[in-house]
Amino acid sequence: MTEAQPVAGVPRRLLWSRAEVVSLRDDTPRVRSLTLAVADWPGHLAGQHVDVRLTAEDGYQAQRSYSIASPPEAPLLELTVETISDGEVSPYLTGELRPGDIFELRGPIGGYFVWSERQPGPLVLIGGGSGVVPLMAMLRHRAIAGPTQPALLVYSSRNWDEIIYRDELERLAAADPSLRIVHTLTRAQPQGWQGFRRRVDKAMLEELGVPALASPNLFICGPTPMVETAAQASVELGIDAARIKTERFGPSGG
């Protein structure tokens, strides 16, 4: 066996590790980021996820997947978790955990929905709600690696206060002329809002110049209907389907 490496596809046994909460940050009223120290973390690629496992005193276990928000270069792992009020895992992660607490996770997982600055071609990221989390890992990685290609983030939120990473996204765009960030607010808009106010659709991607990009890499993450619509629209706009990668989420089955 080769030694453990942080690259997808290399044989590596997937084991549960202990994650210690280092700090917590509220991103929106329903979303909290956890910064974690994970023993023997092998490193990851932007876009990968982890499985989190909670065990009750009676032995009952619940397991969920969460996208990694931190870039590969960060010394600590960051997860950004949306609270689902009747969920089994998210209310604990966002409401109960305190610095110093420990829980189990394993990863990094998934080698498909990943991006590296070494990948040639413009980057187009389309996110809905907390689907922005793996896309943020890509943008943070891009900022650290030094952008060599233009990037566009189209980010759909219900309203202004539910935009995750709003200030950081603004800073990233201000520091990097090759990065464009476009918000669409689907339910409510602040006074004087000039931006989009509908779900991501074909006309929006067309207006943003996506069809004119040469060989772009598209990453689409969000609720299933949003992902299907955006992926279908991209194909209709002439984007090579092999360059469109998607990740869907929604309420887990009962």
Binding site: R248, F249, S252, G254
Partner: peptide
């Protein structure tokens, strides 16, 4: 059953189980 945490709903999410 109340298991309505947001969860991935495509093959990406099977990576952990199959990785085992």
């Amino acid at each position: 059953m109340s298991e309505s945490d947001l969860q991935p709903l495509d093959g990406n999410a099977a990576a952990g189980l199959l990785g085992e």
